[in-house]
Every structure is written in C-alpha cells, then in structure tokens.
Design a protein around this nucleic acid. Structure first.
Ligand SMILES: [Zn+2]
Ligand SMILES: [Zn+2]
Ligand SMILES: [Zn+2]
Ligand SMILES: [Zn+2]
Lengths: 169, 169
DNA sequence: TTTTTTATTGATATTCATTATCAATAAGAT
DNA sequence: ATCTTATTGATAATGAATATCAATAAAAAA
C-alpha cells in the first residue's frame, strides 16, 4: 500500500478532514498521505520525537515515505501551531503535539545540565494551571501576541549528577 | 596581545578568581585566557548569543582565539550551570548567563511560530516571581532535582503574522 | 470522468553548525 | 626552572536540516 496512492485508506486516522484542512489547507495547501500520517502519528504517540524517530516509526507502515517529507511536514506543522518544536541540547530538534491541541498531553521539563537527562512532569499544581491561564492573558494583551502554547524547562542537576559532583553548589 | 600568553592582563575581567575556579577548577580544570574572556563576555553583554557571535566579538580583542575553543567553553559553562543553552528554532544554539548567576538579567520569551521573531520581556509581575519561587521549591523536593534556572517560552503568532493570516484562529 | 495545473514527494546533493582529531602550547604542580 | 598534562587552534569529519529537481499525485476545471 503506497502512502501516496490516491484515496489510500488510512484506517488509523483520527483527524477529521476539517482539522487537516486547518493545518494545511489554509492557503491552498494539499492534504496528502504523508501529511495525514504524520498528523496522526502525533495524535497517537505521547511525548516528543525527532524527525528521524517519526520517520522510523512511519516507514514501517509506509515504505515509500521519504525523510525529507518528514522534515518539511514537521516544519509546516510547527509554523501553523499544531506542533511545538523543542531543543533539549541533544543536537536535534524534537516535536510534540502543541499544548491545547486536541489530544495534547501537556507537561513541563526538568533538564539536567550535566548529563542531559530529561524528566517530565504532568502533575501540575492548581496554582501552576491558574498561573498560566492568567499570565497568558496578560502577555497576549501587553505584547499583541496570540499565544498558542508554552514550554517551561527547569535547568539544573539530577539526583545522580548532584551526588557525583558535590562541589556543584 | 596574545590571549594565551601567561599572565596576559585582562583588564575588563569582572570575574574574581573564585568564580572562575567554581566554573572550571572543580576537577582539575585550568583557568585560561579564552575561558576568562568568555565568562567575562557574558557578564558584560545582555541577551543571548550564538557561538559565532561570541567568537566574532571576542576575536576583535583576541586575534588568536579559535572558534573550536568557544564551542568547547560554551559547552563546559552550560554543563556547570553558568550558562543556559537555548534553541529558538534558528538552526543554531544560543547561550545566555544563567538565571541567578550574578549579573544575570532574567527574562522570558515570546516566539512566533511562523516568522521566528523572538520577543523578550523583563518586566515580571509579582505573581510571576512568587510563582517561580514556590514551584522551584516544590519540584526540587518532589523530583530530587537541584534547580539552577528555568526558561519559559510562549509560542504563538506575533502581531504581524496574526494579521497576515486571519485564518490562524 | 478525464484533463489540466501545480503543490508535493522522494532521492540525493548541499549546507553549515557542531564535534573530533592532533600536534603545539601554556597552566599549574613539583 | 622543570615537568606533566589539560587546553588550545587549525582543520577534518560528522550529521541534522535544507535545497534542488524530475516525477507524481491532489485539487480544480472541463
Ligand atoms: Zn515533553
Ligand atoms: Zn544529570
Ligand atoms: Zn533571552
Ligand atoms: Zn511572526
């Protein structure tokens, strides 16, 4: 089954046409097999993935898929606010479903400056939720900026690195 | 004046030896001209800079400086928590003096997902400050993580991109 | 449906930020 | 002053991301 064959049935698509149109069809963009597959991917997988990782997983189903298309599509989806692009200092970008987008499971990050370990937490304090609701409104008005999501990374040292290097204050 | 000449006088150094030792000398690291210059750079310049930018500015003063050393030093300073490494989707990393580090001028970012424009704001609401004090304590305990700083990026669409593309909800 | 137009794709060449290599050098110890 | 070795600068190598381009397929037109 070629991903590009017209009318190829993607039976795991959870994206209504409406949403795909919203992502791609705003200014004459076309809804294609690869695009559908990539949007779907992020609705089914939790967390953040590199372009290579997305490609590797999808290529199993769709041997025809090209890596360049994955890069292009991830870029487009970021530009349209569907995905957020993150960098954790690993030398390659990671993407995850944007905050607020249906199915998105929002979380924040703890990144170890020494070993690069990334921890995520999903269990927000109520204050945390309230804080972001409030501040996003304030900033939107103050800077004339339409906020679609945010990323909050805490930097520091994980348990292991803290122990291994006592002198790290 | 060669930056590597022993005892080269760096007359704009604001870094006490103590601090440099803290950055480099923990495990036998040496305090060198380039390292001193780079640490100084971030104490005098506000904002975030790429390795190239740091190199370009310092090379004026220190013709001998090598770009590889800049990369290596920025890495080391990130690992030791002196700098934070950011990525704004521009294809190259940016560094800025870590939150809390003496002389650091902390701020948060608004990043346009469409055109890549980066806005900064330094004017925190009291609530914002209170929030981070509280949550950093909570997270430190809960995840056994020594927090040295944080980065908060809001993603969305800037004034221009909001106008140009009305369909962007 | 068939035809037409053109955005998108996949393969691959290219770019360029970052890292690795290594002989020469300089920092810190003796 | 001498010795040891971490660091440096030059440059080669790596690899993520982008550009190129002929082939293909999506949407529009007929
Ligand atoms: Zn995440
Ligand atoms: Zn760690
Ligand atoms: Zn900044
Ligand atoms: Zn913009």
């Amino acid at each position: 089954m070629n991903i590009n064959k017209k009318n190829a049935r993607l039976n795991f698509s959870c994206c209504r046409e409406g949403r795909l149109r919203g992502c791609f069809n705003r200014s004459g963009g076309r809804i294609t097999g690869p695009r559908r597959a990539i949007v779907d991917f992020f609705h089914h997988e939790k967390g953040h993935f590199t372009a290579e990782e997305v490609f590797a997983k999808l290529a199993l189903r769709y041997p025809g898929l090209g890596i360049a298309t994955v890069y292009r599509t991830l870029s487009a989806l970021s530009s349209s606010g569907v995905l957020n692009r993150f960098d954790f200092g690993e030398g390659k970008a990671k993407y995850e479903l944007s905050d607020g987008h249906e199915g998105g499971s929002h979380h924040h990050h703890l990144v170890c400056s020494n070993c690069g370990k990334i921890m995520e937490y999903y269990d927000f304090m109520d204050e945390e939720r309230d804080f972001f609701n409030k501040i996003e409104k304030t900033l939107s008005n103050r800077h004339n900026f339409l906020i679609k999501g945010h990323s909050l990374h805490f930097y520091g040292f994980c348990e292991k690195c803290k122990k291994e290097n006592r002198e790290v204050k």
